[in-house]
Design a binder for these strands. Structure first.
Lengths: 184, 184
DNA sequence: CGTAAATATATGTTATAACAGTATAAGTTA
DNA sequence: TAACTTATACTGTTATAACATATATTTACG
């Protein structure tokens, strides 16, 4: 549906402006779908994404640090999310003997089985979700990549570890917008 | 920058999958910029958007209901955000005499002045942000509109008022993803 | 070796998103 | 007009995002 109808706005002041709204609207539309699919299975989007990261490493365990990096996000709550997954018996945690600062996180059989089930669900729901042909998808991806040519002053990567974070204290709590997930 | 480099992933299993990640990544990239621009001015993105909605109606006042609708979101915290704006003297609140259930919210001179300043800032920062030509923007918007052809089972609009919300209690707290803003 | 620096994770704190529920006013109908 | 329904806004609650700090371990360096 055209974005103008979706949000009941007669017209935008420019194609540029329309593109901004369109990205935001489409993002919400997309996330909403994912969340609704996950809801009956009792896990959140964040938990789901961590499970997929763990599967990506399986049978190798992942440290909290590795998970954080894959989430491409500051994700200070990573420890706590992993703890919730552990409470559901979807992951195991072991102290790493080589470097006792690390915690090895491993997805369990139960976790793998859940992902397998969800794969099928998503395959079905996703197939009809993004309604573009393969050729259109390519154009679309190219445009998105080009769109972001200009780098932001503060890059995501600057915040990947505590040290960097502490060196930059110019900003206060304002970033209420965390959904930088890594799908794979 | 290509999305593969941005998130250090060698390749995606499909263009479809890449598009999903790309939308999410681009959204975060966009919001991050907005938030950083607003930060020095001491208002959040949500507050900023409500101010713009109020300016859109000015000199007419807006009810909380109207603001909620324009936000295109459940936005149960609307009252509280307006209260914060009032504390900063950016808006005024008056009891509506015609219908005493309503609260008339009006942007103040100070609020208008702040928006005017921010307009200039954003014009500068935005100009270089989305790096697409006008023709590319048109193609891009067309693709985004087409992308969403398939409607989600649960539409946003179903949640615009309390009555509708109460009639649908099939879901629990899961929707941690609110950034459906209305820019104008 | 001893001390400082760096690293990895866990925990504490505050604001707020996402609900649910309540209070008040207006509209509707018997 | 009373009784019921709907509409509008406000308030309460819980989980968590976005920090900041603390603790434990390893590495680096004099």
């Amino acid at each position: 549906m055209k974005i103008e109808e979706e949000i009941k706005q007669k017209q935008f002041k420019s194609e540029y402006h329309k593109a901004m709204v369109n990205i935001i609207f489409t993002y919400n539309w997309l996330i909403k779908n994912q969340v609704e699919v996950l809801e009956p299975y009792g896990i959140t989007l964040q938990q789901f994404n961590i499970l997929r990261i763990l599967r990506g490493q399986y049978p190798k365990p992942s440290t909290i640090k590795l998970i954080k990096e894959r989430m491409l996000d500051r994700m200070s709550d990573c420890s706590r999310i992993v703890e919730k997954l552990r409470a559901k018996k979807l992951v195991e945690r072991h102290l790493c003997v080589k470097d006792r600062r690390n915690v090895d996180v491993l997805i369990t059989k139960k976790g793998l089985a859940l992902l397998k089930k969800l794969d099928k669900i998503f395959e079905k729901s996703d197939k009809n979700l993004i309604a573009l042909s393969d050729k259109e998808l390519k154009t679309f991806n190219k445009l998105l990549d080009k769109l972001r040519r200009k780098n932001l002053k503060i890059k995501n990567r600057d915040y990947l570890n505590t040290a960097d974070r502490l060196n930059n204290s110019t900003h206060k709590r304002q970033l209420n917008h965390k959904h930088l997930y890594n799908f794979f």
